[in-house]
């Protein structure tokens, strides 16, 4: 479904602080599977995920997304594809403070030009799925860690993406919440989503739902598991 061909990413090219974060990664990722990227800090997991998620353009190499070549697309089109295909869950969850949970969930859909009320209804339904619709109108800074996490997942789902990308989703969670997170992941997998996770948390990569683990080291794929 997603195919990476010899992806390289160099930061600050041509300057003294030039740094090559990804050095030729070729991969193919199947649909409806849970794939975990594992590797030491600084190995390039986040960079790779943001390249796969069309957030960053690689310096060279090609990405095929459902047989469409996306690497040479300008940002305008890349974003168009990204917001229909990918839902992101960030390490810090990155909710916007000062507005309600509901608004946070609806935010990714605003520029898509959807009418407000149908969108709101869908957002409430998504929150309902995670049993937090009673918190819809609370400001996000008052929510507990677990609630915040579920809001973040609801936000990733609002545009009905086929791929969910999560970067270190359990880093700030205790064991109980981490288990809860993995349960949600398995539920999403059941719904047919493709899931990519970067993590070095054993609780994640040793979980039963994980189909495949990819080891990353120094910006390269180290071994197949």
């Amino acid at each position: 479904m997603i195919e990476l061909i010899n992806i390289k990413k160099t930061f600050n090219a041509g300057r003294p602080n030039e740094f090559s974060a990804i050095n030729g990664v070729s991969l193919s990722i199947e649909a409806n599977k849970v794939t975990v990227f594992k590797g030491p800090s600084g190995s390039g997991k986040t960079t790779l995920l943001s390249i796969i998620g069309c957030m960053t353009r690689p310096t060279s190499g090609r990405i095929m997304l459902a047989d469409r070549e996306v690497t040479s697309l300008p940002e305008r089109f890349l974003t168009g594809i990204r917001r229909k295909t990918f839902g992101f869950i960030f390490q810090q969850f990155n909710l916007i403070k000062g507005i309600t949970a509901l608004e946070n969930v609806m935010l990714p859909a605003y520029p898509m030009g959807e009418a407000y009320y149908p969108l709101k209804k869908r957002a409430l339904e998504t929150l309902d799925m995670f049993n937090i619709s009673n918190k819809a109108l609370s400001k996000v800074e008052w929510l507990s860690g677990g609630e915040t996490q579920r809001i973040a997942i609801a936000r990733a789902l609002i545009n009905i993406p086929s791929v969910i990308i999560a970067d270190e989703p359990t880093a700030h969670l205790d064991t109980k919440l981490s288990h809860e997170f993995m349960d949600i992941i398995s539920m999403l997998k059941g719904e047919g989503k493709t899931i990519l996770i970067a993590s070095h948390d054993p609780l994640v990569y040793e979980s039963d739902v994980v189909d495949r683990i990819i080891n990353i080291r120094d910006g390269m794929v180290a071994e197949w598991v």
């Binding site: 090219a13 353009r57 690689p58 310096t59 040479s72 300008p74 940002e75």
Partner: peptide, 14 residues
């Protein structure tokens, strides 16, 4: 050069 992923190209695009 739309094919390039260089920083110059990214800047121009912006």
């Amino acid at each position: 050069d739309i094919k390039s992923g260089s920083e110059l190209q990214l800047n121009l695009e912006r």
